[in-house]
Amino acid sequence: MAAGPFIKTAGMVALDVETGQLAAGGVGAQARCILSNLWSVMADLGLEVGHMVSATVYVSDFDSFGDLNQVWDEFFSSDDVPPPARTSVGVSALPLGAAVEMEFLFYASQLVLPSERERSGRA
């Protein structure tokens, strides 16, 4: 969803792009799947990590939060770009029985999304 220069994702759970099924594994494995899927979407839209402003992470098992942090650090380890602000929320349940769900906010003032290019006639 785009609103001016802001792009907001819906909550993302760890869906396997091949099968559409929830990826196997706990918080760490599912976080890795979500972030891998996000990186693919970012590439398709021309977004970079530096465009990411914030992330909200919903976790059904806070005892596994260390696993989430380990994966988070794998994806946000650059010294050049700080990681986004992150809010983590413990919940009792998530869609499809997922262990983790994430949503993201991007700021990309110069980005023209594919749907906007089509409406404006820009190539």
Rank of each mutant, 00 (worst) to 15 (best):
F65D: 03
D67G: 06
V89R: 06
W72Y: 14
D63Q: 12
R86F: 01
F76L: 07
D73K: 13
S64Y: 08
G66M: 12
L68W: 15
V81H: 00
A85M: 06
E74P: 03
T87L: 07
F62N: 01
D73N: 15
D63V: 06
A85K: 10
F76N: 11
D67A: 14
Q70N: 07
Q70T: 14
S88D: 13
D61H: 08
R86H: 01
P83Y: 05
F75S: 10
S64W: 03
S88K: 09
Y58A: 12
E74S: 12
A85S: 09
S77E: 08
P84M: 10
S88T: 15
D80T: 05
Q70W: 02
F75N: 09
D79K: 13
S64M: 14
S77V: 05
S77K: 14
V71W: 07
E74V: 06
E74M: 12
S78Q: 12
V89P: 00
F65K: 05
N69A: 04
N69T: 03
R86S: 08
S60D: 15
S78L: 12
E74D: 15
V71A: 07
G66H: 11
L68G: 05
P84R: 09
F75L: 11
V81D: 01
P83R: 07
S88A: 15
D80C: 04
S88M: 15
S64V: 06
F75P: 09
G90N: 06
F65L: 14
V81G: 00
A85C: 00
S78T: 11
S60P: 05
D79S: 11
P84W: 08
F75K: 11
V81L: 03
F62Q: 05
Q70L: 09
D79G: 13
D73I: 02
V59T: 11
D61W: 01
S88R: 10
F75G: 08
T87R: 10
Y58V: 00
S78G: 04
D80L: 13
V71G: 07
